[in-house]
Simulated scan of single mutants.
Amino acid sequence: MSMTVQDVMTTDVASVHEDASFHVVAELLIDRGVSGVPVVDDDDRVQGVVSEADLLAKEEFKERYYGDDYRPPLRARLRHAFGGEGSGFYKAKGETAGQLMSAPAHVITPDASVVQAARLMDSRGVKRLPVVDADGRLVGIVSRLDLIRVFVRDDEEIRSQVMESVADTAVWSPPDAVTVRVSDGVVILSGVVTRHTEAIAVARMAANVDGVVAVRDKLAWKHDDVVDIPVWGGA
């Protein structure tokens, strides 16, 4: 079974109320060593996210957080240089988290897969996602680092999960028909199964196991029951 956001998220979430002052937000980012936090209302529902980028419009934060000689990346300078809500001109006047935050927040639910979380982060260009329940209340946060940890699972743990799945997939073959080896997240499948379709299913199944970097399919089969599909390999 694929890992979900709930399996990897952090539940000890640093967050701020939408009425929190600029100084409270800045202190929290500095003290917790994070680059952004969710902003919530009185019911703990996520309203947005306030990040160091949102605070860069204020010189005081730049000097305290980075030093006098800090200059943000060009993209951030351009974004904050022009007027409009969400720009540096607007946010330089902001005094509370609700005025400084970027909204609406990109959020995800605990039952979403880690793949969904990774794709959402990539498409939205964010480093973290607040995790919310069905009512939009904050229950955790998931970061890029949390997702990366999925791909550094122990090889033996991956092998064990693949072997369990093989038993459910290669139903027409003997229990010891497939040999599974794992090295640095790469799964090597070998052996002889009864049907070609089993070999295809086993390889696809292995590729979907969390933590698998790649699959080297060396499986052979006794009977080719695949019609009008290019042969992937085997005897």
Rank of each mutant, 00 (worst) to 15 (best):
H17Q: 12
S35F: 05
R71P: 00
R79T: 09
T197D: 13
G125W: 01
E59A: 11
A199S: 11
E27R: 14
F22V: 08
A220Q: 13
I200T: 12
P72K: 04
D155Q: 07
P110R: 04
A214L: 10
S21A: 09
T4Q: 14
A134D: 15
R77E: 12
I200N: 11
S15A: 13
K91C: 04
M1I: 11
D225I: 06
G94E: 08
D12W: 08
R128W: 03
G83W: 04
T11A: 09
Q161H: 09
P130V: 05
G140A: 04
V50Q: 00
V171Q: 12
E63V: 13
S21H: 07
G88Q: 01
M121L: 08
V16F: 09
R79L: 11
V186S: 08
V182G: 03
K91I: 03
D69C: 04
G125Y: 01
L55N: 01
L120T: 12
A97H: 02
A214E: 14
V39G: 01
D146T: 06
R216T: 10
V49C: 06
S143V: 00
V46Y: 03
K127P: 00
Q6F: 12
K58D: 14
I141R: 02
E164K: 14
M121W: 04
G233S: 08
V25Y: 01
A105F: 03
V187A: 06
V131S: 06
R77N: 02
R149H: 10
M163G: 01
E27A: 13
A167F: 11
A81Q: 09
D122G: 10
D111I: 05
R79F: 07
L129G: 02
P175H: 11
E164G: 13
W172K: 15
D225T: 05
T96L: 02
G211N: 04
Y65E: 15
V8C: 10
P175I: 11
R204G: 14
L129A: 04
E60S: 14
I141P: 01
F22M: 09
V139C: 04
V150R: 00
G86V: 00
P230L: 09
I200H: 12
A235W: 12
V16I: 12
T11P: 05
Q161D: 15
A170Q: 08
R137M: 09
D42E: 15
A134L: 09
D184N: 15
S21P: 05
G48P: 04
A103V: 01
V24D: 13
S15D: 11
M121E: 06
T109C: 06
V139Q: 10
E198I: 03
R32M: 08
V16S: 06
F151S: 06
M3V: 03
G191V: 02
S15H: 12
G94W: 07
G83C: 03
V215Q: 07
D43F: 02
K93S: 12
E60R: 14
V186G: 06
E52M: 10
G140I: 05
R64Q: 13
K218V: 01
L74P: 00
L219C: 09
A201F: 05
E18G: 01
G48D: 06
M3K: 15
V182H: 07
G125K: 05
R204P: 01
V227H: 13
V213G: 00
A134F: 01
A214N: 14
S2T: 15
M163P: 00
M163L: 14
V231C: 11
L74Y: 10
V227C: 03
W232A: 13
D176E: 15
V13P: 02
V152A: 10
A167E: 15
